[in-house]
């Protein structure tokens, strides 16, 4: 019992941040992301004995979280709204230049199609390889690599266009 508790707490401490960020990029809502993470860890606790390899913990948790997220859509289909600007974290008020840049890029990431964004989040935040991502998303590796390429390419183009857009905004 005690060892299970210790394992669980270690798991929470080590992985809750990455998991929360992944959830956030999945649903674009702070509160929903938090709920998803809580639900995920509660399920993880119940199934903790089935986790043999601690190295696989992160992908295991992400798999649980994806399932939870899918369940959320099953429950309330009407909630399946498109991305809304209002739900994106507003940090403008109290931020420096870096934060403004982040905020701008966040919007771009949020506007990206889900199928491009998800592998990118897994790669950048989760630190997973193309093969691991392919496994998690049940896709083939070439598809994942193509999507990663497109995702970055879109962001690159957006960043390359940025000064022009900024100028327009500022003007």
């Amino acid at each position: 019992m005690a060892t299970k508790q210790v394992r669980y707490e270690a798991l929470v401490k080590a992985l809750h941040a990455d998991l929360y960020r992944y959830a956030y990029w999945l649903c674009h809502d702070k509160h929903v992301a938090e709920d998803l993470v809580q639900e995920t860890f509660l399920r993880a606790w119940r199934a903790l004995d089935s986790l043999k390899d601690e190295k696989a913990a992160k992908s295991w948790l992400i798999t649980i979280l994806r399932r939870e997220n899918a369940r959320r859509f099953e429950r309330k289909r009407f909630d399946m709204s498109e991305y809304e600007e209002a739900t994106i974290t507003d940090v403008k008020a109290t931020s420096n230049e870096q934060e403004i840049e982040n905020h701008w890029l966040r919007e771009k990431i949020a506007q990206m199609p889900e199928e491009y964004r998800e592998p990118l989040v897994l790669q950048v935040i989760g630190g997973f390889s193309g093969e691991e991502i392919a496994k998690m998303l049940s896709l083939n590796k070439n598809t994942v690599m193509t999507r990663l390429f497109r995702a970055r390419n879109q962001l690159k183009e957006a960043v390359d266009d940025e000064p022009k857009l900024r100028g327009l905004h500022n003007g």
Binding site: Q5, V12, A17, Y20, Y24, E34, Q38, W45, R106, R152
Partner: peptide, 28 residues
């Protein structure tokens, strides 16, 4: 670019989330 992406994706995690998770499980 990747650094920027990483920085942008690194959204702030609610401070008390970790404790909440542990508390909720302990209660359960």
């Amino acid at each position: 670019l990747d650094e920027k992406i990483f920085s942008a994706m690194n959204v702030p995690v609610p401070e008390d989330l970790c404790n909440k998770l542990i508390l909720r499980q302990t209660l359960a």
